[in-house]
Design a protein around this nucleic acid. Structure first.
Length: 595
RNA sequence: GCCGGUGUAGCUCAGUGGUAGAGCAGCGCACUCGUAAUGCGCAGGCCGGGAGUUCGAAUCUCCCCGCCGGCUCCA
């Protein structure tokens, strides 16, 4: 498939599978040097600049600065021009090793307090600095040999960023950029950014009339329009069917619950971002999670070990007070519906249950066109920040690992990134453009069973604590559909397309026949629309294409005469003389195998 | 929440102190048309909200709100 690779000596594929002229480490070096050249340009242009950090990131780099001047978009052009000039000077980039003390003195003299702080925190007693002309930066390197190598780059955006990512620290100004080995690669990357913008679910959501987030409603609150609601309904129907197959019981809880319940669960005390309000002197909270209700269902009667595992499923709508600055289309909202389930089982059953959940999750994801994943195991944070015994943490973590190994899943460990109440597995999905999205999460909960004193009776007739596994498969409807829209670029497969076909009469002469075809298809369960506007057929075809409708069914006098339809698909392929019944079967077949 | 940007018709966007504009979408009329835009016409705006400066504000200033790009946080 990649046989043409041979013609590229140092050719490599980048992380998203695109052919690039440099391997990952060469690109990394180039980008790092580009960041230095940018920092030099900023320093030369604005004088008193305090440099923070300037690492490489996926596809590029950034550098954080502190200075009195506030960057404007116009400054970006000036900085790019200055970078070009610096590159042209072709300064040698020289590595120098020095003792930490020397370096500290050097950067004190240069009025670079952030660098001094970095040096103090670095292990070892020597550091390296890199010099190009008058510009000196603390840096591990390596770098390109000359500034001239820095050629194909573009500064992309300005942003604020806290020093060391801590909001208690000073807000710095960050400039993001990208850099590549050749002009073509840079151009390809910029084209790719364009493509990503074209697929933006917020843009497609509006254009395809799927959903909106009206200002009148409040930030982060979604209304689903008819077409979006069809899409969402199809996904929910699929989920319900799959959960039934896999032995889940459906439960339903209310949206508001007394604050005392949130005190029992601990959400109240830990300052979970909830909404609280008062009813007749009694304080209530809107649920940010579904678990307490599920636990109360569990606790509604004594449970025997024979009844376990118990799996409760709910498409549970929750509300969380997300900080205003983090809201983003469907991907980060304040009200959302999780495909949430809680599994209560014995310790001995835990591993098998997790195996089942993983199997379930991957089956669902493949159905929606996600075939590549990255899996992360998040382990226990510092012990004093967590609940639960060492033994239980170990047991839970081992069960997660064993289940992944059972499936032969390659995973990376995110040490200390588990929740305070237990370890978890996060699955990230890779979409059509190679981007990662948050997907299934499986968490073992060592906290709530204790807090709610959840028990079952064992064969020894004694009370035991069940293991509680909290898991979502698609995550939330909102976030998942956002990802789905971008993954398909709005071109949903037939089984998910809100409108599967548009009947487009060529002229009024075929209007009656078109109406008949429309009724026949609708009667057969095809999601079909009739475009009987007083417009040309070209215009109707165009409308359907723009709406990314899978099939446009053109009917004119010819079709009316022999009782057929002309089927045009989204790629522009046209099949004439198709019987409506055959088309209906074709659609039904695709819906059956979800394609 | 914080830093920066931004907000004009349903959508995309012009309009830098002197009576609010275009294209598309919508509605009407004509045309009756064969696979990505037929023509003509008509409607449509508290220029995000509030306060101020000014004879006069979409335009200048301040406050608030939303959105966008990030930081932090997360399904």
């Amino acid at each position: 498939m990649y046989s043409y690779l041979c013609s590229f000596h140092t050719a490599d594929l980048d992380r998203k599978g695109f052919l690039v002229s440099m391997d990952a480490s060469e690109l990394d070096i180039l980008r790092h040097s580009t960041a230095h050249v940018m920092a030099q340009a900023v320093t030369e242009l604005f004088g008193d600049v305090k440099l923070a950090i300037g690492p490489t990131i996926e596809d590029g780099f950034y550098y954080d600065f502190e200075l009195d001047h506030t960057f404007t978009p116009e400054d970006i052009e000036k900085i790019e021009a200055k970078m070009k000039e610096i590159a042209k000077r072709n300064l040698p980039i020289v590595r120098e090793e020095m003792s930490s003390e020397q370096a500290e003195i050097l950067f004190e003299e240069l009025h670079q307090p952030y660098k001094v702080e970095l040096i103090r925190d670095l292990p070892g007693d020597t550091v390296t600095v890199f010099k190009q002309g008058d510009f000196i930066d603390l840096c591990r390197g390596p770098h390109c040999s000359y500034t001239k190598k820095v050629k194909h780059y573009k500064l992309l955006s300005l942003a604020g960023a806290y020093w060391r990512g801590d909001e208690k620290n000073a807000m710095l100004q960050r400039i993001y950029g990208t850099a590549w080995g050749t002009a073509d690669e840079l151009a390809a990357y910029l084209t790719r950014l364009e493509e990503i913008a074209q697929r933006d679910h917020r843009k497609l959501g509006r254009e395809l009339d799927l959903f909106s987030l009206p200002e009148e409603l409040g930030p982060g609150l979604v209304v689903w329009h008819p077409k979006g609601a069809i899409l969402r309904g199809l996904i929910e129907d699929f989920l319900k069917e799959e959960h039934k197959k896999r032995g889940y019981d459906f439960v339903v809880g209310p949206h508001i619950m007394k604050t005392s319940l949130w005190k029992t669960s601990g959400h109240y005390q830990t300052g979970y971002p909830m909404y609280f309000f008062d009813i007749e002197g009694q304080e209530y909270g809107i649920k940010p999670m579904n678990c307490p209700a599920h636990i109360l269902v569990y606790k509604s009667q004594p449970r025997s070990y024979r009844a376990l595992p118990i799996r409760y499923f709910e498409l549970g709508t929750v509300y969380r007070h997300e900080r205003s600055g983090v809201l983003h289309g469907l991907l980060r909202v304040r009200g959302f519906t999780q495909d949430d389930a809680h599994i209560f089982c014995t310790r001995a059953q835990m591993e098998e249950e997790i195996i089942g959940v993983l199997d379930f999750a991957f089956h669902c994801l493949r159905t929606f066109g996600f075939d590549e994943y990255e899996v992360m195991l998040s382990t226990r944070p510092e012990a004093d920040k967590t609940v639960g015994t060492d033994e239980n943490w170990e047991l839970a973590t081992n069960a997660l690992i064993a289940a992944m190994e059972h499936h032969g899943i390659k995973y990376t460990v995110d040490p200390g990134e588990g929740t305070f109440y237990g370890p978890k597995i996060d699955v990230k999905l890779k979409d059509a453009l190679g981007r990662l999205w948050q997907g299934p999460t499986i968490q073992v909960d060592l906290n709530l069973p204790e807090r709610f004193d959840t028990v079952y009776y064992g064969d020894d007739n004694a009370q035991h604590r069940p293991v509680m596994i909290h898991r979502v498969v698609l995550g939330s409807m909102e976030r998942f559909i956002g990802a789905l829209i971008e993954n398909y670029g709005g071109q949903f497969p037939l089984w998910l397309a809100p409108v599967q076909a548009v009947v487009a009469p060529v002229s009024e002469k075929a209007a009656d026949y078109a109406a008949d075809v429309y009724k026949e298809l609708r009667g057969a369960g095809v999601r079909v629309e009739l475009n009987d506007k007083n417009e040309t057929i070209s215009s109707k075809v165009r409308d359907a294409q723009m709406q990314k409708v899978p099939f446009t069914l053109v009917v004119g006098e010819n079709e009316a005469a022999d009782g057929t339809i002309a089927v045009r698909d989204r790629s522009g392929q046209d099949r004439r003389g198709v019987k409506a019944a055959d088309f209906i079967e074709e659609v039904a077949a695709a819906v059956r195998d979800r394609s």
